[in-house]
Design a protein around this nucleic acid. Sequence first.
DNA 1: ATGAAAGCGCTAACAG
DNA 2: CTGTTAGCGCTTTCAT
Lengths: 335, 335
Amino acid sequence: MSQKKISIDDVARRAKVSITTVSRVINNVPTVSNKNRAKVEEAVAALKFKPNVSAQRLARGVNNAIGLVMPGYPGIFHSFYAIELVRGIGHSCETLRMDMVFHITNGFNPINNNNVGGVIFADIIENRKQVESAVATGTPCVIINNKVDDLDVSYVSIHNHFGGELAADYLYSLGHRDIAIVSGSFNTQAGIQRFDGFRKYLEKQNNPLNEEYIFEGDYSRRCARVAAEQFLKAKKRPTAIFAASDEMALELMAFFLEKGVKIPEELSIIGFDDNPACLYGPVALTTIKQPLFKMAEESVRMLHKIIQEQKHVRKKLILKPELVIRESCAPCPKK
Amino acid sequence: MSQKKISIDDVARRAKVSITTVSRVINNVPTVSNKNRAKVEEAVAALKFKPNVSAQRLARGVNNAIGLVMPGYPGIFHSFYAIELVRGIGHSCETLRMDMVFHITNGFNPINNNNVGGVIFADIIENRKQVESAVATGTPCVIINNKVDDLDVSYVSIHNHFGGELAADYLYSLGHRDIAIVSGSFNTQAGIQRFDGFRKYLEKQNNPLNEEYIFEGDYSRRCARVAAEQFLKAKKRPTAIFAASDEMALELMAFFLEKGVKIPEELSIIGFDDNPACLYGPVALTTIKQPLFKMAEESVRMLHKIIQEQKHVRKKLILKPELVIRESCAPCPKK
DNA sequence: ATGAAAGCGCTAACAG
DNA sequence: CTGTTAGCGCTTTCAT
């Protein structure tokens, strides 16, 4: 069944050169004569030789695999956020020729950092302790989507506060004054900060957020329905809603459309993410786009650098989100 | 910054035992005196020692990492299917103490199988060649969601043909005769087989599928809208629709609801997957549940066995989907 | 129950 | 440009 594993010696023997030469050609070291290179390549092909990665890592002393740890709470995995991150990180690893080993964790079971050269934390909901332990053992790591300033780690995040402001500013400038928000979970930095940016902006305009217009969501579609019911019952219906994720915004839209509310004529809705689903529905969703893919790329690049240089020069990177105007917001109808 | 990597020698020295003994305790070999065990454990803890996985794998001669290769076509990643698979496989790996290294591939760039002990193919859309190459080099592998009988590989799949029948049978038994289908992509086995099961069932009832009622979708929400438009224009509107994914079914539902069509009174809709999103909308979606998580688990178990036993006894496993009745289907109104 | 020693497959000085 | 040689950190006989 499984044929004898063939090793570098087999190749060397067949090509009639030393294993060093073989090693050189498989590692693209230039100092090999064309003749030898050809012989080795022939042997490699004929034998279908693939270097043993474990041996390489051991000999080289560096591990070119990175761990990606995802928070394991239910639903994360069905979020656009997580998927984009995985895609982006996967893609970057591919181009940097690193392996990406995947960990889903609920924050309880400690993860192994010893099988990888470093780890990327895709947000740290409940696994702050794991980050600390990684830092303590000197495992290179970078954190995504969280500003962590009390630990010696690099991170790349999104300027969520600014994103919240952006949304508020747009709605406000369209003339809206009765504005509601379905925030993200306050267990996440993103949730808090988007809310904060949004709230503070409105306060600055002397148009502070009405209590009835605040709903703490969790980025999921399900909670958006509950929020919608709440807004419907408010003394005065809001004329605009900011949802901290497109998923929520989309569900809001579906809900109000079902109720016969015209969008955007009677109600403006703005989301957050720039999920491709924005384009599918009956009304294209205006949103705040966050550069998820870019964030993923940068995190890999950072980690790669740390691993290669074998030392950590702390870096912080904050990417700015931007407004993407589509069809779901219109000037305020009232007055 | 990064403290000197500590190795098994350091532990042995500190515990005043041989490295062999240290190796024994970290591998839970019983033949170690309590006294020595305690000393070693103390040293391991004090030094925060973590065994070097590459060295272990090299010495042991087996690699307990598995590769998961996902087709890279756009959208796959936003599908419930992919996500559940990743979750299930991740989970199983965790319990079997294996690493899961992730590969997203478009079928062009060959993947490395030499850094893992085996690989799981989550469907094989465009990467049939990669499967062949894996098989050729003796890399243990198992395929998900495809029956591959012309290659010496194990697979675990879903009885999609039966799933299609199930949907047709349910709709037919509710009295529907004008039944439409939004199939999955015919580039996928699942797409073809669900369609086939569905079509053949109706043929058997002497109620063959009307050409106008067939739409080849791709599992995505977007295409469901196009399908809906087509059905709307049909000479006679169907009274029931089977969609080969819940995503499509949900979008269909949203579309018709917008148009004022009552569901299920005027139109029955049945999906496929049992995506949790089935429950969110205004009308809970009746669907065909496929045991994705189970399929994932089984695939890991199979692969693990092959890797451990170092030999491949081919196995084929076909899991059955089942009908989940909720609110989106009702008896046919006509007549 | 314990340890010495021989690898696992590869890389990286080093010498030529 | 090429080969010899000494490890990388761990497991695993084989003695003791």
